[in-house]
């Protein structure tokens, strides 16, 4: 695949990443009404719309921050597609009446938008698996990983846990190593 060119709408993603009030407000101004209308017309209410809107923005933020997401398609159709898909998934889970799985008639959506949305969904699926496995670790391991990966100073965390810095590092890699093993096993299971 040729290296995808970054779309000029990347500034939205950068704005989210920088928690830039002006750009975030712009996102709400431009798109909140559309998401609201879509969800209220598809068995949801305004609260649902708000939740979906917020969750999708957080997904984008996380992807940008931790997985260096770069936008290769226009922001508006991409973001609206994410919101719609997230809502459809939620309806499916609640097993409410089937909704028209028509990704959208109104918007003229290009291939680039679909492929980037698919990529992001795949990432979310993976994350869900990692988190499921994480929940299976012992409480102590979860505690150590959670703290060791925060933005707090490692020495301070060791003190907080009442252990030495060396022990914290050793324990952290042990816990993460067993998490990796569990995830690999699970992935083999679903592939094999």
């Amino acid at each position: 695949m040729a290296a995808n060119k970054i779309h000029s709408d990347q500034f939205y993603i950068d704005g989210l990443l920088a928690n830039d009030s002006r750009i975030i407000k712009q996102i709400y101004d431009k798109f909140s009404a559309k998401v609201k209308r879509y969800i209220c017309n598809n068995s949801g209410d305004e609260d649902d719309a708000g939740d979906i809107f917020q969750e999708c923005l957080i997904d984008l933020y996380n992807q940008a921050k931790y997985k260096s997401l770069k936008l290769t398609c226009p922001f508006e159709p991409f973001f609206l597609l994410l919101c719609k898909r997230k809502w459809l998934n939620q309806l499916k889970k609640k097993s409410v009446i089937p909704v028209t799985k028509n990704d959208d008639g109104l918007l003229n959506i290009g291939e680039d938008v679909f492929s980037q949305a698919d990529e992001l969904e795949e990432e979310e699926r993976q994350s869900a698996l990692y988190l499921k496995m994480f929940d299976k670790l012992s409480e102590r391991c979860r505690e150590i990983i959670k703290l060791a990966l925060s933005d707090e100073h490692q020495e301070k965390i060791a003190a907080q846990l009442g252990v030495s810095y060396g022990y914290l590092r050793k324990k952290k890699s042990e816990c993460l190593a067993s998490l990796i093993q569990m995830i690999k096993m699970e992935e083999n299971k679903s592939n094999g």
Binding site: N62, K65, Y66, K67, Q126, S127, Y130, L131, F134, R142, I145, K146, L147, A148, L149, S150, D151, E152, L176, L179, I180, I183
Partner: peptide
């Protein structure tokens, strides 16, 4: 990849 997920979903 796992680390990125944990950083965004688990760690403060």
């Amino acid at each position: 990849n796992i680390k990125a997920t944990l950083q965004s979903h688990v760690a403060d």
